[in-house]
Every structure is written in C-alpha cells, then in structure tokens.
Nucleic acid binder design. Structure first.
Lengths: 355, 355
DNA sequence: TTGAAAGCGCTACCAT
DNA sequence: ATGGTAGCGCTTTCAA
C-alpha cells in the first residue's frame, strides 16, 4: 500500500507539499501539482482512511438533516437509520442535527436549511421537494463547497451529490404485478392517494396503472381520493366510498391514512373482501397485514435510507477532504421495492438491522 | 470522546499500561486492571477505530473463506460481496483468501479449513455443513483464539461468532403465502428439491407444507424429487413427471436445477400452465421470471451475505484486538426472505449495491 | 509490573 | 512555494 511518504520520497517534495498538491489546497506550484498527481497515479496511491479519519478528529464535522417526519410514522425507521449511522461514526467526530418538519411546505423547508447552516452544519442530508427554489438553493450550497445529498425524495436536476431511495414508479408497477397474479378477472379499483401534489404518490399511481394497462385486462378505476396522509380523512372518505361502491374488488392505498381506510373497510360489511395493497410497513400496516386485511405491502427500505444517506455523505466529506474543485464519485443508491406479505413480514420484535 | 490518554491521566498509569489492562494483555497487575476497567467504564471509554486501524497496519490480517461455489451460480453474488468488502477494507491491511469447493463433503471441508490456516489466515468465514466433526473443529479454533463465523449456512450449536443468512423455514412459508394468495382452490403440487440431505432445502419444504396446512385448503403433493442442483437431472425427471401428471397445478423448485425444470415445463405442452415458484435470482431464474414461466422467486441477499460476513468478522477482529478471553458482541444478521416478481426484479444492468 | 517513546498515515501550523 | 514538525489515538518495543 503506497502512502504519501512514498510519493514524497519518489518526487523529492515534502509530505506536506504532496498532501497539498493531492488535495488541490492553495499555495502550491501548478508544475509541482502535475508531477505529484502523475506519480501518485503511477504508484496507485489511495488514501488510507484510518489516517484521514484520525487527523480529521481535530475539526469535527456536523451533518444537518431535514426530515418532514412530524406526524408521519414512515420516518420512524429513517430516523433509526440516521441514529445508527451517527452512533457508528461518532468516534470519527461526526455529529448529526435533525430538523423535524411537518409536510412539504417550500418556505418551511428553505428556512429549515438556513437554520441547519446557522447551527454550524457543514453538510446537509435532505428529504425535501423538487421545486425551483429548493433546487437553486442546493446548487448554491454545492457551489460554496457544502456537500448536499437527498434521501427518500430526490431533487434530480440539482447538483446534489447523490440520492438514496426507491424508484416510485417501479413500486407502483410492483403492486400491479401482484394484483395481476392474484386476480385474473377485471377489477373495480379504488385508489386512495396521499396528495395529488406529491410527485412520489403520482409516480406510484402512474406505475400501477401503466402496468395494469400493459397486462391487457380491462380494469376499471372507480375513484381516486386524497387522504392527505391523514387517518381521519381517509376513514371518512373511505366509509362514504365503500357505501357508494359496494362492488369494489381492489383497494390501492398509495400513501398514508392506511389505518383509516382499513378501519372503514373492516366496518363496511362489503359483500366480498376486496384485495388491498399498501406501501411501507408502519405498525398499522403490519397489523392489518397480519390480520389478513391487507394482502401485500411494498416497502422502501426506510432504515437504509437514513443509514446509507449519512454514511455515504460522510464518505464523500472524507474523500473530498477540504478539496475544493473536487467532485466526489457518485453514490446513488436506488433500492428495489420490497414485497411483504403476511409470511415474510418482520415480526414486531425483530430489529431489522443495519446493512 | 474519552481516550486512553484521558484514562491514563485519571488513573496515574501510563498509556501503555492502560492499553494492556483494557485488552487483557499479559504482564499487568490484576489490581491495576481492575482500577483501569472501572475508570474506563465510568468515563464511558470507547476505542477510536481510526486509531486502532492505523496501528493495526503493522500486522495485517487475512480472512480465509470457505465457499462451496463450484458449479453453483448462487454463490456468484456472494463472491461479489466478498470482493467488495475486501476492496473496501484493503487499506486497513485486510486480505481475503477464498477456497472454492464443490458441494458439501465433510472431509473436503475439513481439509479446506486446514489449508486456509496453513496459508496464514487468522480468521475464517465459512459456508459449510452442520456436522459433528465440523462443529468440533470450529470450537477448537475459537478456543485457540481464531475468530470463525458462518454465512449462508449456519452451524448453530458451535461457538462460531455469528451467522449471516436467511431463515430457510420462513422462506418456505413465504412461497406458501404467495401460492395461497394466487390460488384459492386445492392444488396438485410437484416439489423439486436439491437434496434430501441438505438441511436448508428440507427446512424450506417444511415451512412451505406447514404454512399450506395452516391455511386449511386440502392441497395434494404429487411427488418430491431430487435434482442434486443439476439442470440435466432436473430436466429429465421433470420431463417424466410432467408426462405422468399432466394435471399438476403448482411447481415448487426448492434449490438448483431451475433451468432444467423450467425447460421441461415449457416443452411439456401441459394443458394449463401451473404456478411456478423458485428460490434465488441467478440469471436462469431471472430470465424465466421475466418470461412469465416462474411466477415468483424468493431470494436470500447473496451479496450481503458475503459483504456483511467479511465486514462483521473484520469488526470482530478489530474489537477483539488481540484480547484473549474476550467474546466479541453478537453480530448475527438474519435477513428477511425477499420476494421478487417480474415487476420488481432487478434488471440485468442494475448492480445491486452494497448496503 | 510499569513507563517512555516510536510509529502507523495524514493534516495543519509555523518557518523559511 | 516548500519544508519541517507536531499531533490525532492506539499499539508495541525497549528499558527500567
């Protein structure tokens, strides 16, 4: 394994100069840089992370996380993942600050970002919206040399370093695939989405409908209703809809409000139990899955979104190592949708561990 | 963050003595050990991994892997996981030696273990059989202070440090759950297992049958046949069986030989296509899944078995850090069975990345 | 049994 | 622009 010392000896420069040259730090002759880079490449130099980490103890790093988790159980496991990564990396001087928000209001998100920076965060991990203002803010930060990455919800056309999360469209298709396996006859489908304004929810519906259409059976969508991720709203509209459409054969719950919709279903006294599909595995969902109300749920690795987000961002910070004009390598992680049915769902006591 | 230096100052001993005391190294007054341990616990000492790793560069570690992967595509991804972990940890002085075996012959496995040790391996990661001889060998090694862990196939009553893999019984139940969702009428089931001598295969069948029995529909098992994980054997027996039982409605492929059985099925000209279930996602299986021959396949995180196995074993070595009479904390990782259907299977180009 | 010191690889500060 | 050096936390060797 070749070290900075080796390069120093080979080139005749001191270790300090080699370090400065390798990392594009200021105050070094461009010619020297060229020589050093050349030799480093030839010798196959790769920084020893242990050394970097040890030296980094002097200037601890703080990652700021923006999480719209208030009132949304889904983010519980994301939070667990964040905490696990923080614990694991704390000995390298990493600390985390989490800004908890409710919902996806652009102004609040922009304000949240500012507050994290004021708190002294030197890198950001965001679950936010893909709007022009947010995109511009991210690009500004990146240009200032502040690493920013996205988890759960991407801001694709921004300069964010990477995205960790699932493909919403594919998740929707997966539900359609399950339905097609279970039902060979045309279905009367009721769709409960979270919000028509949220990209991920719409993508799930699009994937679902496109895949059904490809399978060529003439299904019918009875209605599409918003729950705003709220159980009460979901309950009320579901009660009304089940009474209006007792012939429903498939219920597709795209986002939050699972408890409300399922409760309405159980109480509805429909002549035949429809197929029910949902996303994620919050406790409400797991219970209804075990009870046989929900047939299958498709999940998106919440724990790993948190854990991997922090870990990859920290890696990027270390790799960058104060190097301006340096783009860390891509660390996208697009996780496959996971299918859970009664038989393979984790029981309450399992802790789904880090990977 | 409290360091060895802090403890040294607090207790009045030198850093060297504190280190020796903390790690149970020889030649230190028992009374001193007690004091140091006490103070360390009070101050909440936790070793800084960067420091440990840096110092460890002087005595590199070599993990030996026993992998019965010859002629078994399943282990391709396990191997990829091993390689990824090795690459990631190489800068800490870790190297890997893999002993490739064919099948599960006890003598060959014992010999493989010996050869790895002769090659200078100081820790072992095994995919082996749960036999008395193997168990005893593992216990010997652990008692000698050599860390040993299992991936893919556990040796549960041995002293191995941990197991990374799936719960075979639960995987079998998962298939049964899928079948129950898809078929509401009694099925005529054909089972192709790998071998009646392999515990994991039998567990899958047991889980499958028990779960079906619980669901209370009177299914009928037409036959149970061994493929010995061989495509030709699978093909031949499947051809004969499909011709004997054209009324089959479900085909359950428990292990290898997927290509053979599916080819026979496609060529059989059965009056109605039966449901087909399999395990793992080797290329043959993925192709038949995409073609609609296989309805679903249940996988066991092969990449992660390799990656996590190495990573956790290395962690254990570092944590142990030459400390005899020290039991590293449990690092078991029991992965949930993953369900894949056409819609959520990874496409050939995705690289399912490390977690 | 314990202490002192060198060194693992890298970064940062102070001289030059 | 470059060199020299101290120090991050831990381990290990050599003395005492």
């Amino acid at each position: 394994m070749v070290t900075i010392k080796d390069i120093a000896e080979k080139t005749g420069f001191s270790r300090g100069t080699v370090d400065r040259a390798l990392h594009g730090r200021p105050g070094v002759n461009p010619q020297t840089v060229r020589v050093v880079m050349q030799v480093a490449a030839e010798m196959g130099y790769k920084a020893n992370t242990a050394g970097v980490l040890l030296a980094a103890r002097k200037k601890p790093t703080r990652i700021g996380c923006l999480l719209p988790d208030v009132g949304n159980d889904f983010f519980r496991d994301v939070m667990n993942g964040l905490a696990a990564a923080q614990k694991e990396l704390s000995c390298y001087g990493l600390s985390l600050t989490v800004k908890h928000l409710r919902g996806f209001d652009e102004k609040k998100h922009l304000k949240g970002i500012d507050e994290l920076l004021e708190d002294g965060c030197t890198a950001l991990l965001l679950t936010t919206i893909n709007s022009r203002r947010i995109r511009e803010r991210i690009d500004e930060l990146i240009d200032q040399g502040i690493p920013v990455a996205c988890i759960n919800t991407d801001v694709p056309s921004s300069k964010r370093l990477f995205y960790v999360g699932t493909d919403y469209y594919k998740s929707g298709r997966t539900i359609a695939g399950l339905l097609s396996m279970m039902a060979k006859t045309p279905q009367k489908i009721m769709i409960f989405t979270g919000s028509f304004d949220i990209f991920g929810h719409n993508e799930r519906i699009r994937g679902f409908l496109e895949c059904l259409a490809e399978n060529g059976i003439g299904h019918e969508v009875l209605c599409q209703e918003q729950t705003l991720d709220d159980n009460i709203i979901g309950y009320k509209s579901a009660c009304a809809l089940f009474s209006d459409h007792p012939d429903v054969t498939t219920v597709f719950i795209v986002a939050g409000g699972v408890y409300g919709v399922c409760k309405a279903l159980v109480e509805s006294g429909l002549p035949a139990k429809p197929h029910v599909f949902s996303f994620d595995d919050i406790p409400d969902t797991v219970r209804y899955l075990k009870d046989g109300v929900i047939d299958a749920t498709v999940t998106q690795w919440p724990y790993d979104q948190g854990y991997q987000g922090v870990k990859r961002l920290f890696d990027a910070i270390i790799e960058k190592n104060g190097n301006t004009n340096f783009v860390p390598r891509n660390r996208n992680l697009i996780l496959s949708p996971l299918i859970y049915i009664k038989e393979n769902i984790r029981s309450g006591s399992d802790t789904m561990e880090a990977l």
